[in-house]
Amino acid sequence: MSDTAASPLLEVRGLQKFFPITKGFFQRVVGHVRAVDGVDFTVNEGETLGLVGESGCGKTTASRCILRAVDPTGGSINYRTRDGRTVDLATLSPAELRPLRAEIQMIFQDPFGSLNPRMTLLDNVGEPLLVNGMSNRNERTARVAELLRVVGLRPEFMHRFPHAFSGGQRQRIGIARALATNPRLVVADEPVSALDVSVQAQVLNLLLELQSRLKLTFLFVAHDLSVVRHISDRIAVMYVGQLVELAPTDAIFNRPLHPYTAALMRAVPPADPRVRITDGILGGEVPSPAAPPSGCYFHPRCRFAEERCRVEAPALREVTSGRFSRCHFAGELSL
């Protein structure tokens, strides 16, 4: 992927999404949950950017802003369209967005909730085609058959309903639907976390294969670090609505530059009884995005925190080429 890695397909700058907290009969706004609070990243054409973090860190909200499933409060989402224009997805009207919807598709987490149980596979997978103007039924049937074959299902299945399929097969159906409109950017929100271990590997392999075959760009949102590590070229780590680190996969795993990234990695139990997790278990809890701590949001849990961290909020800065960290002491700590 390195030869195409220079050209950003998606450029997110200062993305914010605040949800109001209301109180009383008149729904008076008493505060805001700063779910996404100034997130910057780019996704290059043909690469996979992994977006990781614990629950409530804003990774799903950020990905939904890109799809405009929720409207961002602030910031810009510059996307380079198929015909070479650059548009700001954050400000487009619904009518202006509609032609772009085919280019940006989503794979959902729950393969049981994301398919319409009263539609056959033909209708489930074919619906995006119908919406995008493929009104000829025979043409649509042929395309659905092709899509099912692409994701490793038999085309004869297209007249069955989703309940006849296992979790892994349903996730393949969801992938087929996402691919129906020939997307360029696919946002996958926890696409394998509801699957069993033996099936998870099959779906990860399918995603990798489809990416190289169809030149797809993935934004892969997940909490499982070993899965994200396996599939991503670069990884962005979120904590309380902010990006704390962004770096190429190998670099971030070999030498993280933010104490939170290091703690997150240490917390994953290694699948080998001869490797023991011993020290460095992160204490405390994730703060509420409605009332984040002063200064660096991570300072109450950080073992390197100094007075400066309590007072001054660090900015996300490029420490070495292509490696970003939101830490005052990035590169100076031995993590």
């Binding site: 296992s166 097969q169 998870q200 590997a201 099959q202 590590r229 396996h230 991503s232 070229d233 994953v268």
Partner: peptide, 19 residues
């Protein structure tokens, strides 16, 4: 079939066939 924290990334994982 589980992705490890140390193995090679972005290659096909050995899978258990079927469901």
């Amino acid at each position: 079939s589980i992705p490890s924290m140390t193995g090679t990334t972005r290659v096909a994982l050995p899978v258990i066939s079927g469901a």
